[in-house]
């Protein structure tokens, strides 16, 4: 049941994330996160590429969804830490070159990362967050024009939400 095993083993319970996010902390988090965005976005674009049977991460602005989701107070803060640390680990493993790699190199780098339990878990988490974008309600800024739903022929139920997270 210990889904946070990877988070704890990475020693991530830092002061930054140890309490409710105050405004200054939020700004620090935002800056840190911004620096990792190109890498995470490149991973999403590789996992959910253009030209397939479902809309791509890029077309659906999946990175915009991921960014807003991770910064929302309803999101599990351990998972947020995990996304950040996992991206930093990927950058370290690829000497900061992941974003500029070609697709074959990215595939090899991600498959190698997947060989580690930590990397496999992180990649799965990025896939989950991207699928939330592609198949969640368009209100959250992705699944634009319900393209994700249209691709698989299944649609969300009625009534659709009129505010994100039921206004919390």
């Amino acid at each position: 049941m210990d889904r946070r095993y990877f988070l704890i083993s990475a020693g991530l319970f830092t002061i930054l994330f140890g309490a409710k996010i105050q405004e200054t902390q939020k700004s620090k988090l935002f800056s840190l996160f911004e620096s990792l965005i190109p890498t995470i976005e490149a991973v999403q674009n590789h996992l959910f590429p253009q030209g397939g049977k479902i809309p791509s991460a890029k077309e659906m602005n999946a990175i915009g969804f991921l960014k807003e989701t991770l910064l929302h107070r309803s999101f599990d803060r351990d998972t947020r830490d995990f996304v950040i640390e996992g991206a930093k680990e990927l950058i370290a493993r690829t000497d900061g070159k992941f974003v500029t790699m070609d697709e074959n190199q990215k595939e090899r780098a991600l498959r190698a990362y997947e060989e580690t339990d930590y990397g496999s878990s992180w990649l799965h988490r990025i896939m989950i967050l991207t699928m939330e974008a592609l198949f969640g309600d368009p209100l959250y800024g992705s699944n634009i024009h319900q393209s994700g739903w249209r691709a698989i022929g299944i649609f969300g139920g009625e009534p659709r939400p009129t505010s994100r997270y039921c206004q919390i």
């Binding site: 969300g156 939400p161 994100r164």
Partner: peptide
Amino acid sequence: KAFSKDEIAY
């Protein structure tokens, strides 16, 4: 009225 079928939220 706020009981939508919002998978992400609920």
